[in-house]
Computed example of a mutant assay.
Amino acid sequence: MTGQANEREPRAGARQARSEQYLDNDLKGQRRWYSTRASAYKTRAQACSFAVIVAGAATSFLQVLPAGWLPASPANWVPVATAAFGALVVLLEGWQRISRYNETWPSYRAASERMKREQRLYVNGAGAYRGTEEEEAYLRFVEAVEAIIAEEQKLYWQGRPDEVSTKTPPNPA
């Protein structure tokens, strides 16, 4: 058993180094980019949603606030404040619709996690990499990672048909 573990460690180490070289150098840190962007988009989506909730609650609260609690006459500033909170809700919801943080971060996270899984399978010689020659295993790994990226890009553009140009490029002939 220990002979088998010692035999596997050098191969796993070489595969680890080769997979990191591919992910970090060839893809310029693509997996890290997906992971970082997923975290940032999730944070932004949650912040926008929380701000909408706070502004909506403040709008309702200001409308029913007893007049004795107000520092000035409600006629002066309550309509302005509720209008401002209402505008804030509309702007935040509009921005969320444009930026699509809630739609994008899960697909980025999934792509990052699938790349991590594929790297673990490759490094450990499991799954599609079991019993394959080194070069064949590496080519399968590259193809699998490229398929993950292509699928994520397809999903990204699938929900954005108005952002993709349908024109064919001019023929340079």
Rank of each mutant, 00 (worst) to 15 (best):
S107G: 00
A137C: 02
D162S: 11
M115F: 13
P106E: 11
L91G: 12
E118G: 07
R140I: 00
R140H: 13
A84Q: 12
V142Q: 14
W105C: 07
E135Y: 13
Y101I: 14
E135C: 07
L139Q: 15
A75M: 07
A84I: 12
P79M: 09
V145G: 02
T82W: 08
P106W: 05
N102F: 01
A144C: 08
P161S: 10
G125D: 02
E133N: 06
R97C: 13
N124Y: 01
W157N: 15
R140V: 01
V90D: 10
S165R: 12
E118V: 03
W105K: 06
I98K: 14
K116F: 14
A84G: 05
M115K: 09
A137S: 11
E103K: 02
E93A: 13
S112A: 13
F141D: 03
L139M: 14
Y138T: 00
T132E: 00
L121T: 10
Q119V: 05
L139V: 08
I149T: 07
N76M: 10
E134G: 13
R130K: 04
V90W: 09
Y156E: 08
A83C: 00
N124V: 06
K154E: 13
A126T: 06
G86L: 11
R120M: 04
L88Y: 01
N124M: 08
P161R: 12
A111H: 09
Q158W: 13
V90R: 11
T132I: 03
I148C: 01
L92M: 01
P161D: 09
Y122M: 05
W95K: 12
R114H: 10
K116H: 15
V123R: 06
N124A: 07
W157R: 08
T166P: 04
Y122W: 04
A147W: 05
E133A: 13
T82A: 03
W157P: 02
V145E: 09
E133P: 15
S107A: 03
A128P: 00
G125V: 05
E146R: 14
L155T: 10
A81D: 11
R120P: 02
A137W: 03
E93W: 09
R97W: 15
W157D: 15
R160D: 09
L91H: 10
E118S: 06
R114P: 04
G131M: 08
A137Q: 02
S112H: 07
E163N: 14
L139N: 14
S107L: 09
E93S: 06
L121G: 07
A83P: 00
E136D: 02
T166I: 13
T166Y: 05
G159K: 08
V123Q: 02
T132C: 02
A110T: 12
Q158E: 14
R140A: 04
S107I: 12
L88W: 02
A137K: 00
R160A: 12
P79V: 06
A87Y: 15
A126I: 08
E135A: 15
